[in-house]
């Protein structure tokens, strides 16, 4: 059954994907800009593929070059389908906004307080404007 989560769209749009609930991540130095895979060996999500997924994390960390890496991911088609954060992050927001401006790449960014607890890893998530719907529970055996 679909469950709706309260959200604020800081970069509106529509998207669907599997939720990747992940510890705060620096896109620069943390994600391969060509493949969208987490390459930071210090990160618990090392090896996770972000392409086409709804990335859910509390906030961004690390490098201010993450805007460029995110724009590059979206340009090359290896970027997330959407990003859900618990608090606004200028570095993530601007990367998405520039990719939209230059390439028309859509990657909605939403703020959902408590998102990393409210959305389960592996759940199917649909985003439309300021609505975030968890449309499918994650498989029982985990992801």
């Amino acid at each position: 059954m679909a469950e709706q989560v309260e959200a604020r769209a800081v970069f509106p749009g529509a998207a669907e994907g599997r939720a990747v609930v992940i510890e705060p991540l620096s896109f620069w130095g943390g994600v391969d800009p060509g493949t969208g895979v987490v390459v930071d060996p210090h990160h618990p999500g090392f090896g996770t593929a972000l392409a086409g997924c709804v990335v859910v994390m509390a906030h961004g960390v690390g490098s201010s070059s993450s805007s460029s890496v995110l724009a590059e991911l979206l340009r090359s088609g290896s970027g997330p389908a959407a990003i859900v954060l618990e608090e606004p992050d200028a570095i993530i927001f601007i990367g998405v906004a520039v990719a939209a401006e230059l390439y028309g790449a859509a990657c909605p960014v939403l703020i959902v307080p408590g998102a990393t607890r409210a959305i389960r890893h592996g759940a199917g998530v649909a985003i439309d404007g300021a609505r975030v719907r968890v449309v499918k529970e994650p498989p029982r055996d985990g992801v």
Binding site: S63, S64, S65, S66, S67, S68, A71, A90, I91, I94, G95, A97, V98
Partner: peptide
């Protein structure tokens, strides 16, 4: 603030 590429 923590400014990144582009907005800088």
């Amino acid at each position: 603030e923590r400014y990144g590429d582009f907005i800088d």
